[in-house]
Amino acid sequence: MKLTVDQDVCCGAGQCVLLAPEVFDQREQDGIVVLLDETPADALHEVVREAAAVCPAGAISVEEGR
Results as ranks from 00 to 15, higher is better:
Leu19Thr: 10
Ala20Lys: 00
Arg66Ser: 10
Val48Thr: 01
Gln26Glu: 09
Pro56Tyr: 03
Arg49Trp: 00
Val33Phe: 13
Asp25Ile: 13
Glu50Phe: 01
Ala13Pro: 02
Val17Ala: 03
Cys10Val: 11
Ala53Phe: 04
Ala57Cys: 11
Ala41Arg: 11
Leu18Thr: 14
Arg66His: 05
Val47His: 01
Gln7Pro: 08
Val33Ser: 04
Ala43Cys: 06
Thr4Cys: 05
Cys55Asn: 07
Gly12Pro: 07
Val34Ala: 01
Gln29Lys: 07
Asp37Gly: 14
Thr4Asp: 05
Thr4Glu: 15
Ala51Tyr: 01
Leu19Ala: 14
Ser61Met: 01
Val54Ala: 02
Ala43Gln: 14
Glu63Asp: 12
Met1His: 05
Ile60Asp: 02
Asp42Ser: 13
Pro21Val: 11
Gly58Met: 05
Cys10Ile: 10
Pro56Met: 06
Ala41Thr: 05
Ala20Phe: 01
Glu46Tyr: 02
Gln26Ala: 13
Glu50Gly: 00
Leu3Glu: 00
Ala59Arg: 06
Gln7Ile: 04
Thr39Phe: 09
Ala57Ser: 15
Glu22Tyr: 08
Phe24Tyr: 09
Pro40Tyr: 12
Val48Trp: 05
Ala13Cys: 13
Ile60Pro: 07
Glu38Ile: 03
Leu36Gly: 10
Ser61Phe: 02
Arg66Pro: 12
Ala51Phe: 02
Glu64Asp: 15
Ile32Tyr: 08
Pro21Met: 03
Thr4Leu: 10
Ala52Met: 05
Lys2Ser: 07
Gln26Met: 11
Val54Glu: 04
Val62Pro: 07
Gly58His: 12
Ala52Tyr: 01
Val34Ile: 15
Val33Ala: 08
Ala52Thr: 00
Ile32His: 09
Arg27Thr: 11
Ala57Asp: 11
Gly14Gln: 08
Gly14Asp: 03
Gln7Cys: 00
Glu64Phe: 01
Asp37Leu: 13
Glu64Cys: 00
Gly65Ala: 05
Leu44Tyr: 06
Val9Cys: 10
Glu64Arg: 07
Val17Tyr: 12
Val33Leu: 15
Asp8Met: 00
Glu22Thr: 14
Leu35Arg: 12
Ile32Gln: 05
Val17Gly: 09
Leu18Asp: 12
Lys2Arg: 15
Ala57Leu: 08
Thr4His: 08
Gln7Arg: 13
Asp42His: 06
Gln26Ser: 12
Ala57Met: 04
Asp8Pro: 03
Ser61Cys: 04
Pro56Phe: 09
Leu3Pro: 02
Leu36Gln: 03
Glu64Ile: 10
Leu19Cys: 02
Gln26Ile: 01
Glu38Arg: 11
Gln26Leu: 13
Glu63Leu: 08
Val9Pro: 08
Thr39Gly: 00
Gln29Glu: 14
Ile32Thr: 14
Val23Ile: 15
Ser61Asp: 09
Val9Leu: 13
His45Met: 03
Asp30Lys: 09
Gly58Tyr: 07
Arg27Glu: 11
Val33Thr: 10
Pro56Asn: 09
Val9Thr: 15
Ala13Gly: 09
Glu63Lys: 08
Pro56Ser: 13
Val62Arg: 09
Gly12Leu: 15
Glu38Tyr: 00
Gly58Cys: 06
Asp25Trp: 14
Gly12Ala: 10
Asp37Cys: 15
Cys10Thr: 09
Glu50Asp: 14
Glu50Ser: 06
Val23Pro: 04
Gly58Asn: 15
Leu3Arg: 04
Val48Phe: 07
Val47Glu: 08
